[in-house]
Structure formats: structure tokens, C-alpha cells
Design a binder for these strands. Sequence first.
DNA 1: CTGAAAGCGCTTACAG
DNA 2: CTGAAAGCGCTTACAG
Lengths: 357, 357
Amino acid sequence: MVVKGRRATQADVARLAGVSQTTVSMVLNGTGVAQRRVSAEVRDKVLDAIAVTGYAANPSAQRLAGGRSSIVGIYTYEPVFPHAAADFYYPFMEGVEDEAERSGVDLLMFTSMSGRVGKSLVSTGRVARLRVADGCVLLGRGSYPEDLTELLRQDFPFAFVGRREAPGGQAPYAAAAYGEATGAVVERLLALGHRRIALVNEFTGHESIEDRARGYRDAMSSAGLQPVTFDAPDLTSGQLLDALEGGGVTAAVVTSDLAAPLRRAALARGLDVPRDLSIARLGDPERPDGEDVDWTGFLIPRWEMGAHALRIVLRQLAAEPADPDDLQVSIPCTLVDGATVAPCPAPDTRPEPNRKA
Amino acid sequence: MVVKGRRATQADVARLAGVSQTTVSMVLNGTGVAQRRVSAEVRDKVLDAIAVTGYAANPSAQRLAGGRSSIVGIYTYEPVFPHAAADFYYPFMEGVEDEAERSGVDLLMFTSMSGRVGKSLVSTGRVARLRVADGCVLLGRGSYPEDLTELLRQDFPFAFVGRREAPGGQAPYAAAAYGEATGAVVERLLALGHRRIALVNEFTGHESIEDRARGYRDAMSSAGLQPVTFDAPDLTSGQLLDALEGGGVTAAVVTSDLAAPLRRAALARGLDVPRDLSIARLGDPERPDGEDVDWTGFLIPRWEMGAHALRIVLRQLAAEPADPDDLQVSIPCTLVDGATVAPCPAPDTRPEPNRKA
DNA sequence: CTGAAAGCGCTTACAG
DNA sequence: CTGAAAGCGCTTACAG
């Protein structure tokens, strides 16, 4: 029954079953106009013919005809070579993969478009390629507003792993609840008696950094304390340390990749961490630092973010329109009570410059 | 110029450029009938129109019309849940991914079809799904002859990661050169004075086990020694050890996952490895054993196998028909001179039952 | 050198 | 309940 080198089509099935091709399509999809129903006997004939011919739909044709291909794409802005950050990014991918499996969709990795690090898809003319898939998960450390805008304009279902702001719209995302987690860390430090708590950012202008900053500021303000922020891209760890010491800071909450260098600089200077200076780390580092430190702080729910991102894409593919609120989700971070934070050293007898007037 | 919510098609481009849709397709593909050439000025008009409209081909339509989609699939027979063997399988995947990136094709992971461990694609009616892609890399520990046969019959380009025999044809694969590697390990043991060298298989009937067995037998025969093989699936490590000791075996070459248990059993019995018994491991274990042993033996070139498998698929997609020999490749394993092998303990004064007559 | 037209295998109004 | 037909966006003979 099966023809050499050629797959069975709906037409083949129809011929064998003695029905029209339309009917075959109908028993396959079920969900035609007005729940179009096929009589039980016709359905059985068709099902038999399908079994005999070994028919299976051609996904390209389905997609072209306006149906779904059951393929969700995943595009990562990060370079695949070198695999330096692979350990950091793999858990996100794993979450996406696992959720894809659970949902019965296939996952298209846009490996062909890699290698233009830091470039938007729009600027390199590769946005259209995403359309092979029904929707796409976007993953990467940077922000690419023009891509988000273009995808929104095209009504193309997507979700970013991590919160990203689109200039003129609501871009779907699965983010980590950095604000809440940072707030919790600050409150922990407050409970330990710290008052001069500084936020140290390794870079600026990124949504994830803004989220942490908001959590930090809110927690400080609630406690009646003045927020003190250092943006470190232009400072060496040594200069940073000078600034912290100069300000009488007893605890620093530090974004992921900067925590380890700061701690090393403090140790090198003869400071005891955490006795002299408490350091809390706001998230897993992207680059492993090779040290085995029991950090106080929080972990990024990477697996969950990946899984949720896929789910958000699927939500946009669902029959009923999705509630916009369901397309932007924040996932709690895991708080870790480690060994890099200790009670505030001594009751500070000096005037408190950080205290609000 | 760009229409809201709708992508530009070749028709849009043609309209804007004032040419036919066929011409647009021609300047895009170049490789029409008899190197069909478009005049330079028309070509420029078309290129301009493409830039203005932001046109990019719809891959589903391309594929349906008989072109290529530049998508290669990867199907893994292993379960994604639980991730127990993930560490073992990831390097294969990585090789496939890296090669896909280098070749400019996208990689479709058939996550939707997972979850039927040990079942062939044919038996569960999922072969056809592979056709979304231009070709497919197959990965898994088992052998699925009926899938290979079906894929060969369909003339569908594919490659298995690991040698697999198809009942009625030549199935493409990228394998590890287990035979050569095993032979080299045996020769190393011979050079150390061992004569009673046994092969221990953790299971049987698998191509990779057969390859090792061949390498072992050839090396032993060349040295004028009688091969002694133990198939362990039905033996406990203790029983196996009894058999080895009973046969006066001084060195065992053991397939991947059985090496560690055998060594532990020997140590538990008060034997010194390698002084009393040399054990060489034939390949990386699939399940990590949690020990940190410096094994003598060889490593499976997993990354390379994955990369080669993809290349073999691409070779079948190339314009000129591929030489069948190029579709079955064996990649050398990395030999490791570790600490689980030592010179043969004492000149054996007993009669040598293993010596050929 | 360029265009009109068929066809890939589906889905989905639109008629019966 | 079922079928004839249009159309999705391409590629590729086939005519000019």
C-alpha cells in the first residue's frame, strides 16, 4: 500500500476510504466550522485508511494552509561558541525543552542565525526566519527593543526569558522576581542590624538590574533608610571597596558576577567577610568564578523561567485570546541563607549619614 | 511599506518591483533551469523591493514547493525525563548543534515524540513527523531496525549516532571506532605481559558491543591467544569475579558501565586493582558512578560523533549524490593511560589453558 | 531574458 | 453529514 519513496497524502487516504479529501482533513482536525461532525462509519473508514497507508500530515503544508505546525522556536542571542556561559544558559534551555515535551510541541533551535553576537534580528534581516515556527522563545542577556517591537507589530507569538521592555507595547516574558528577592535580602540584612546597606550594580540600564534596584530602594525606604547605589562598570573592585568603606557601609547587596571579585578584593585588603563586611549576592553568576563560596543571596529560577516562557508562547497560540496579564509572569527566586552575611559588627556610634532627615 | 500583521510575500515584492513573481524567486535562488539569468537592472530593482518590504521567504512554502527548509531534525530515543543520562548524552547533542550552526541549518528537536522509551518510531506511527525537516539525526542507546528500514525505504536522509545495522540496507551512521580502540587497549595489556586477558560485556547483541568484541578477538588472535568472553547481564559482580579468578585472568577489558562495579567487587574481596587484577574500561560510562577513578581505557568521541552525524545528513542533501562510504564513518576513540592497569603480577608458572594449541 | 501557470499538501469557508 | 473549490507562498518546468 505504501508507495516507495513517497509519503501518503490526504488524497491517498481519501481515495482508499472512498471519501473526499476534505472529509479526511475533518476527521483529523475535528474542530472544523461549527464542530463539523463526520458520521461514525465514515470516520472509521478514514481511520482504517490512515492506518493502512501510514499517513501522517505534512507539517509544512499544514502551516502554509494556515494551520499549526506544532513547532515552537527558540532563539538565543548568546553565542554558542565559545561555550563559556553554557552552564549558565543550559538550565533555561532545559526548562523550555521539558515544557515542550510535556506540551507535545517540537522545538526548533535557530542555530543557523547564531554568530552575530549583540545584533538584533531586525538589523540583520533574520526576523522572518522565526516564522517557520508557530511562536518563539527568546533568550539572551541583552535587550533588543527593535526586535520586540517588530514581533509585536507582526502579532507573532513570542516570549522573552527575562523581563524586557518594548518601546510601544507589552512584550511577553517569563522573568525572575528580582525586586521581591532583592527586597527580601535587604530585609534579612536589616534584621541583622545593618543600616548602611549599599546596592552595587555591575552594569546599568538593564531590566533585571532595574528590578533589583526597585526592590532595594523600596526595602530601604520602608525602613526609613537612604538608598546608596554604586554602579560599578567604571570602578575597579578596589575603588569600589574604598567607596564602601568611606561610606561606612556594613553590608553590600551585589549583582551576580560582581560579588566574587568584590569579596576577593575585601579579603585581599585584610577584611573579614562577613564579620567586617557582609556581602549578599543577587542571583547566580553568569561566569563561574571557580571559587566555592557559600553565598547568601538568591538563585535565579532558570528552569522555571524557561518552562514558563514556552507556556506563554503556547498561551498565545490557544484558541481563546490570552489575558495580557498572563503573558508577563514573574517567578519567585530561591533565597539562600549562606555564610557571606553576618550581624552588623558594632553598634554604630557615629552619626548616620544614611538616615533620612 | 510593511503591512501591519502580514509578512511580505514574493508577490508583494514583484508588484513593487514591477516584475513577475517568478523573477523574484529567480533572483532569490539563482539556480533555476540552465542557470537562468536575470538582467542586472531587474535584479537590482528586485533587491531594492526586497529591502523595502523586508521580505523573507516562508520556509513552509519553500519546503512544500519542493525546496529545502534548511531544517535538520534530531530525534533521541532516550527519555528526556529523568535527566539521569543527560550528562552522557549532552556532548553528542552539542556536537550536532555546533555543526548545525557552522553549516547554517536550524535544528529541530522532536520533543513532542519523546516519552515512549524503547519504542520504534514506526511502531508508534511517528516516522512521518520527521519529514518537517530535510533530514534527521537519530540518537539513542538501542537499535531500531524497523525505523532504519523504513527511513531507507523512504529515501529520507538520516544518520544514526553510533553504528546501527539495517536489515536490508546500508544505514548511515557516525560511530566510534570501538574495535580499533579495544584492540589498542588489549595490545597495551599484552605489552605489560598479560596473557590471560578477558573481555567482559555488560550486555550483548548491540553493534557497539560487537565492535569491541571484534577488536578484542582480533588482538588476542594476532597474539596467538585464546579469547575469553564473559557476558555479564546474568552474572553478579561477585560471580563474575569468581569466574575471572578461576580462569587465572590477570586483566579484564570491561565495557563502560560494568567497570566500576567490577572494580568495587574486587576491592571488597581484598584484591588490589591493578596489582592483582588490571581492569581497562572500554568507553565512558553512561551512568556516572560517583567515584573518581583514573581509568585506563578509552573515551568515546561524543562531540565528534554528533558533529559527523549532522555532516552525514547534510552530505545526503547535497546536489551531487554522496559516496555510500562517506555515509558510514568511524571516529577514533581517545586512549587513556590511567591507573587501573599494571604489569602482569608474576610470571605464570602454571600451564596456560588460554594458550592456543 | 521574462512571465503565465501548474502543483506541492494541507485548511477552511461555502455550497449542497 | 459531505464535497468541490479556493488559497496559503513558494519552485520549477514550459512557453514565449
